[in-house]
């Protein structure tokens, strides 16, 4: 079943507000295998979009294409950057695209080891994005790092410890601080709470929710956890076999799913 159950207005333009992100007819094939197929959507500043679906449905392929890590086979991804305005990110030169990624984006990986540099201290990991943007005043950067470590509720006394000496949940919080310190306009999160135990997960989710609200961040969160989707996302896209099969307001998609696959997904969640 590949038809898209489109909400009456979900494909409409966002209106007077210029979109932060506009994805048009994005397709990515791996040889003859489809990763994601003909995906179009827009995001507004401050909006939190959840992408849900089973493993292999194309969630991560989509995230990697949008975040500039993987060039799509066809289609375009336009992002409204501070420096260039609304431009197709793959039309930018490599250095320009990298600079835009450093300035305007954050990327929180599921596994903190993919997003952190394990050989330098936790504090240096948090400060590095500022250095990458050309900041050189160590006192200021140290102060900003301390502020962020306390925002993500880490013990400031451990600022100089290496990431491997922190627990998984703490590493994830370092990664979050590292990806928010430079005041990005859009943060990508790939299963940000996957692999953590539930008490740590709850705390991290609550922290993320507060930060997203306080900073007015736009975020794209890929998750297979419906509870995470409900708590974090304003809007959901449900993916199956590379297609977006349903999209709409998060609570509406979860409480009154229309597509057979979404109904299956929602009814498969265990109740406690």
């Amino acid at each position: 079943m590949t038809e898209v159950l489109d909400r009456p207005t979900s494909s409409q333009s966002v209106g007077a507000v210029e979109p932060l992100l506009r994805v048009s007819n994005l397709t990515k094939n791996y040889g003859h295998v489809a990763g994601c197929l003909d995906i179009s959507f827009e995001m507004r500043p401050g909006e939190v979009l959840g992408i849900v679906g089973e493993s292999g449905s194309g969630k991560t392929t989509l995230l990697n294409c949008i975040s500039g890590k993987l060039a799509p086979t066809s289609g375009s991804i336009a992002f409204n950057s501070r420096r260039h305005g609304l431009v197709d990110i793959y039309d930018l030169s490599e250095p320009d695209r990298r600079r835009m990624q450093r300035e305007d984006w954050g990327f929180v990986h599921q596994n903190p080891r993919d997003g952190l540099r394990m050989r330098v201290s936790g504090g240096a990991n948090v400060a590095e994005p500022l250095m990458n943007l050309g900041r050189r005043h160590y006192g200021d950067m140290r102060q900003a790092t301390m502020d962020w470590l306390s925002r993500v509720e880490l013990d400031l006394g451990r600022v100089d410890d290496k990431p491997r000496n922190f627990s998984g949940g703490m590493q994830q919080r370092i990664q979050i601080a590292r990806n928010l310190i430079h005041n990005p306009r859009l943060v990508f999160m790939d299963e940000p709470t996957g692999g953590l135990d539930v008490s740590v997960q709850a705390r991290l989710l609550d922290l993320l929710r507060e930060l997203v609200r306080d900073l007015g961040l736009a975020a794209i969160i890929v998750t297979h956890d419906m509870a995470v989707a409900r708590l974090m996302a304003d809007r959901l896209m449900v993916m199956k076999g590379g297609h977006v099969v349903e999209t709409g307001l998060a609570d509406q998609v979860l409480d009154d799913p229309q597509h057979p696959y979404t109904q299956l997904l929602v009814s498969s969640v265990l109740q406690i």
Binding site: P8, T9, R44, E47, R235, G248, L249
Partner: peptide, 9 residues
Amino acid sequence: TKAPPHQVL
């Protein structure tokens, strides 16, 4: 019932 998600919110 027809408003986009951001407007419903």
